[in-house]
Design a protein around this nucleic acid. Structure first.
Lengths: 223, 223
DNA sequence: GCAAAAGTGTTAGGTATACACCCATGC
DNA sequence: GCATGGGTGTATACCTAACACTTTTGC
C-alpha cells in the first residue's frame, strides 16, 4: 500500500479509548497520565496512540489497550471522530475515539504504573479534548443501556438481578422499582438463571443469572 | 500548526457524504460518478474529498457538498469513520463519513453535470466501501426518526401530516395507521399548524404544519 | 433473634392498537 | 356528482407505575 500524496498527509490519525467499568457502585474510566511539556504536565488523559500502517482503527484501539495499559476490554466500539484543528497543540491529529467496557474483576485486579480506573466525578480537567470525549462516551453508554445488552459487559458473567439493576441505576443516575425492573428485564428473555446462588454473603443468597447471548443484542427500549 | 511526524503520516484523512432526500415517494441519495482507472470506471460513489489543513472534518464535509456538487444540505452529522487498510486501492485513506438531508425542493431543482439523486434500490455496486456507508447511513436515519425530529429535514418547512407520515413510512419501510400516527405525533408537541392550507390540489386541501423548533430535538421513542 | 438483602403480586391509570366513515375540493 | 385524499373517535387490550411484606441466610 502506498502512502497518500504528501500534500494530504499533514495530519496523523490517532485513536483514544474511553474504557468504562463499575467499582464500588461508581462509574469509573481508565485514565493514563499525560506528561507532554510544555502543554500538559501530569494531567489525566485517555490511553491513545497513532494508528500504524498495518492496522485499521479497531485494531489500533485494541493494541493501545493491550500494549500501553495492559488491558483486554470485553467490549470495544467506535465512538466518534474528533478533528478540531487545535485539539492537539503540537501538531494536527485527527482522533478516532473508542468506547470500551470491562467487568468488575478486571478493575479489581488492575495494576499499572501510570494508568488507573477513577470515578467520573473526580475528572475535572483532562488533556487535549478528552473531557468532550468523556461526556459523549457517557451519554452513549447511558443511551445504549436502553436499547442494547451492553450492560453485560459491565458485569461478571454470572450476576444477581440487583447487580444488573445497579448498573442501570449508576450509569443512568436514577433509581428503579425493584419489582418493575425485574418484570421488565425478565420479559425480554435476554437473561437466564444459572441455577447457582451467591455464596459468602451475610444475607439470603441471590440467584445468579447470565445473559443468554454473550454478544451485544438489540432490545426493546428499556426506560 | 506543525505537521505530525512523518512516520505517522502515511494515511490521508478524507470525508465522504451520504445525502438523503425523498423524491416521488422514494428514498434517494446523492451520488457522484467515480472514474479512477484502473480501479473504478464510472461507478457511483458518494461525494468526498481529502480534509485540508485549514479545516476540521465537519467543515470539510460542508465544503465537499458546496464545491464539488453544489449543494447545501439542511442537516449534516458525522456518521462513522471507515479505516480498513485496503478500502482505497491506491493508497491509505481513512474516511470520516457524514450523513446529510435535503428537502424535496432541493432535489427537484437539483442539476449537476456528474452528480444526481438516485433511489437506494438502484445502487447495487458503488466505489470503495460506499455500499457499507450507505447501509449504515440508512440504518442510522431510520433509527433517528424514532428518537429525534430529523424528519423535518426531509420535508418542506410547511408540510401536511400525510407528507410527514410518508417520510416515516418510506424510510422505515412500513405503514402506519393514519389516526394513530397523528395522535402520537401531535401529542409530542413538536409540530404546530401554520394556519395555511394546501393549494392547487384536486382534493380537500390539507392543513399545513411546521416543526416548532428548526433544530434537531430528542423525542420520545416513536415506533 | 437480629440484621441484611432477596424475592414476590395486585391494582389503577394510561397508552397502543384496531378499526370505518364523512368532509372538502376540483373537475 | 364523482373522484381524491383529508380529517376524525371509540373500545379494548396491553403495558406501566405505584406500592409493602415475607423469606432466607450468617452471625
Amino acid at each position: 500500500m502506498q502512502k497518500a500524496p504528501e500534500k494530504f498527509r499533514f495530519a496523523a490519525v490517532a485513536v483514544d479509548v474511553v474504557v468504562f467499568g463499575i467499582r464500588d457502585n461508581e462509574l469509573c474510566v481508565l485514565v493514563d497520565t499525560v506528561h507532554r511539556p510544555p502543554h500538559y504536565d501530569n494531567i489525566p488523559g485517555f490511553p491513545g496512540a497513532m494508528v500504524l500502517p498495518e492496522e485499521n482503527t479497531d485494531e489500533a484501539a485494541a493494541r493501545v489497550l493491550r500494549d500501553k495499559v495492559a488491558l483486554q476490554p470485553i467490549h470495544l466500539e467506535q465512538l466518534y471522530t474528533f478533528s478540531e484543528k487545535d485539539r492537539d497543540a503540537r501538531n494536527r491529529v485527527v482522533s478516532v475515539a473508542y468506547m470500551g467496557c470491562v467487568r468488575p474483576n478486571q478493575i479489581e485486579t488492575y495494576d499499572h504504573a501510570s494508568a488507573s480506573f477513577v470515578p467520573l466525578r473526580s475528572l475535572k480537567k483532562m488533556a487535549y479534548d478528552h473531557i468532550s470525549m468523556l461526556q459523549l462516551a457517557e451519554k452513549r453508554l447511558a443511551g445504549k443501556l436502553e436499547y442494547t445488552t451492553i450492560a453485560q459487559f459491565l458485569l461478571p458473567t454470572h450476576f444477581t438481578l440487583t447487580e444488573l439493576q445497579n448498573v442501570y441505576e449508576i450509569v443512568k443516575r436514577t433509581t428503579f422499582d425493584k419489582r418493575n425492573f425485574r418484570k421488565k428485564i425478565l420479559a425480554l428473555d435476554i437473561i437466564a438463571e444459572t441455577g447457582e446462588v451467591q455464596s459468602g454473603v451475610q444475607n439470603r443468597p441471590a440467584a445468579l443469572h447470565k445473559f443468554v447471548k454473550s454478544t451485544i443484542q438489540k432490545i426493546e427500549f428499556l426506560g
